[in-house]
């Protein structure tokens, strides 16, 4: 099973997200992550869907999505021709001064940023592809992770490849 990244250009109106997730669910497609946001045209949004599947299934996902009225265009992004980003916020409990420093150092190695510190916890922000964030989480685990929030992956095609 491979991971496929779909970039879906669609209407930004009530019910769209529901219709798409409803279809994906009913067809039994295996969705790893889904993230949507408004575009420069406020009436449109772009959604990035990561499908964990084979080529055959991905074709099916695209064809079924194409039948949704609100969808304007779908691109299956190829690995070499795109970049992906995900934002991670992770809150770690701190026992003492030393562990706090260790965590800050770790964050720096990952080009993360400290966004909040209190006496009992520290919150780090990290941007990157999914694997990078997974790695950071693994390293933070021993310190005791309190909460995690991730945006899900968003992706775009690289400069010379044009998307719609």
């Amino acid at each position: 099973m491979a991971k496929y990244t779909l970039s879906v250009y669609m209407d930004n109106c009530p019910g769209v997200l529901f219709k798409i997730t409803n279809m994906l669910n009913r067809r039994g497609f295996n969705i790893e992550s889904l993230a949507a946001g408004i575009t420069d045209d406020p009436s449109k949004s772009r959604m990035t869907v990561i499908v964990s599947s084979d080529k055959f299934q991905v074709d099916q996902v695209v064809k079924q999505m194409n039948k949704i009225v609100h969808v304007l265009d779908i691109t299956v992004l190829e690995r070499e021709k795109m970049f992906q980003r995900e934002l991670l916020l992770v809150k770690v409990g701190i026992k003492d001064f030393a562990t706090r420093n260790e965590i800050i150092e770790l964050a720096e190695v990952f080009r993360g940023r400290v966004v909040d510190v209190s006496n009992t916890s520290i919150t780090i922000e990290s941007t990157g592809d999914e694997e990078k964030n997974n790695a950071l989480i693994q390293l933070l685990k021993p310190y005791g992770i309190e909460t995690i929030a991730r945006t899900g992956v968003i992706a775009l095609e690289r400069g010379k490849y044009n998307q719609n």
Binding site: P14, G15, F18, N22, M23, K67, I68
Partner: peptide, 14 residues
């Protein structure tokens, strides 16, 4: 009903 009928229509308009 727009939600209920979403998977059994070409589109449901609210």
């Amino acid at each position: 009903i727009t939600g209920i009928s979403a998977p059994i229509t070409k589109n449901s308009y609210f």
